[in-house]
Amino acid sequence: MGIKLAVFDIAGTTLHDESNVALVLQQTIRLAGVEVTIGEVNEVMGYAKPYAIRHLLQLKNDQRFSEEPFIQELHARFVHDMKAHYATHSSVREKDGVSAVFAALQEKGVKVALDTGFDRDITNVILERTGWQKNGLVDAVVTSDEAAFGRPYPYMIYRIMEELEIRSIQSVAKIGDTVSDLEEGTNAGCRYVIGVTTGAYTVDELKKGPHTHLVASLDELLSIF
């Protein structure tokens, strides 16, 4: 059975990222009066951002991690700042060759989907900026607030499969740049779980996660599939 669906992460995988997400999330935690390092923030890249905020506060023994209104307040600030970044910053662009890879996969009969640790508000700004959906290069998009649980749970992938009428998980590939992406694909049972080494995590860091392949460039997928 060949691959019929490729599910891609966004920031760091298909969208160029200069640690912008990590820096904004670090600043969000600082608003709570808590200092976290970029290394600590990178460990929760890929996860739904309310979960990431909660985890980082708990990591620093801040008891407010259990206060849902406080978590939502911080998340609202994160969403505001990320939307502003993706709407206006000159560095926002797709990674080299992404549109060409999407088109090549579709020509081979592979549906292209995105799933993300962002919520729908941030994701819509990215889709508008890149034009992927408008240009017909993406067949489905699911965000972390549209599933019961985000990564590392498999539910965003299953929701995409349902929407696109993909029958078997063995015809699905998951591609992402964080360990949470790899865990999501593995938990879903994807045939291929592919780590992208030019994003938030290094090769050595990604090797610690469950995977079938590691790639530096998305055009390597065309030969893998």
Score class of each variant (00 low, 15 high):
7 V>F: 01
21 V>P: 00
22 A>P: 09
23 L>R: 08
27 Q>W: 09
29 I>H: 02
34 V>L: 09
38 I>H: 00
44 V>E: 00
50 P>K: 04
50 P>I: 03
51 Y>T: 05
58 Q>C: 12
59 L>E: 07
65 F>H: 15
69 P>Y: 14
71 I>F: 01
81 D>C: 12
81 D>Y: 11
82 M>R: 01
86 Y>C: 05
90 S>A: 15
92 V>E: 10
93 R>Q: 14
95 K>E: 05
104 A>Y: 11
107 E>Q: 15
109 G>H: 09
110 V>G: 03
111 K>W: 08
112 V>F: 08
119 D>E: 07
119 D>C: 11
126 I>E: 04
131 G>W: 03
132 W>D: 09
132 W>M: 15
132 W>V: 11
134 K>I: 06
134 K>G: 07
145 D>K: 15
153 Y>M: 10
155 Y>F: 15
156 M>A: 11
159 R>F: 07
164 L>K: 06
166 I>L: 08
169 I>D: 09
173 A>Y: 11
173 A>H: 10
174 K>N: 08
178 T>D: 00
180 S>W: 03
185 G>S: 12
189 G>L: 05
190 C>A: 13
191 R>M: 14
193 V>K: 00
200 A>Y: 05
205 E>C: 08
206 L>S: 04
207 K>E: 14
208 K>G: 06
223 S>P: 02
